[in-house]
Nucleic acid binder design. Sequence first.
DNA 1: CTTATCCCCTGCCGGC
DNA 2: TGCCGGCAGGGGATAA
Length: 272
Amino acid sequence: MPELPEVEFAARRLRTWAVGRTVSAAEAEPGSPLRDVTPEALAEGLTGRRFEGVRRHGKLLMIDLSGDRVLLSHLGMTGKWLRSKPGDTPRAGTRVQLALDDGARLDYVDPRRLGHLRWLPADEARRHPMVTGLGPDALEICATAGGLAEQLDWSKRAIKVALMDQSLVAGVGNIYAAEALWMAGINPFVRACDLEPDDYARLAAAIARAMTESLDRERDGEIRYIQDRAAQNPFEIYGRTDAPCPRCRAAIMRVLQQQRSTFYCPVCQPDR
DNA sequence: CTTATCCCCTGCCGGC
DNA sequence: TGCCGGCAGGGGATAA
């Protein structure tokens, strides 16, 4: 579920909760989203380590621990890091529990198990395809003049599909692709190679704006994913099939693109 | 090489 | 009321 803003928010919370703290006990569930590490090895590896920092690139969290070890954490569709107390009953979908030396507990919760956790020496983490396979971070590249176009304008795929390819630009998912293309007035099916430099400039600004707005909205609250309840949906067009376009009142369309829902306004985002 | 398709998982919702 | 299909913000593996 999380895209760049939600993962950034998770990184900030993890920093305040964990950096400087030491893991006093760890427990991981078999069958959890652990990759290339057993629950026992992860729990044993984490115990006694101190959190040194939390970095984010695109949707990937890189959690640095003492002794030059890194926990790579990708939240997938339903992953979250939450703080609780040692006695609390774990909420459904809890896969990892870390007791910290300040008396708090860190829980990795991932009901659908589509997330990824990897436990690696720092140098291996740096070289891991999960890290090296990512394109530039979306917020950074969108702040660079011409940067977004340089990443995408050679591709013959639909701009929405190319935008969501994490090896080209890291951090844009289904929601922010829809929101940004709507803000920029670009049809999601136009080939990336057919967009003009001016289109890319508007698109980069739109991505930055859509993501920044979410970060501002989430600053003081808990991450809250939309439920299909229109009243809670904070987005302009995502999830709003048949609702009037906020700009022109035409009905928002929902179509499938690469097996994922694409939302757009047929009037504000015309074919070309 | 790039691109398209299927698959992985669980939970919720609306329709019959 | 209960079952069933569709859908969900993720990426990886595989085939063309």
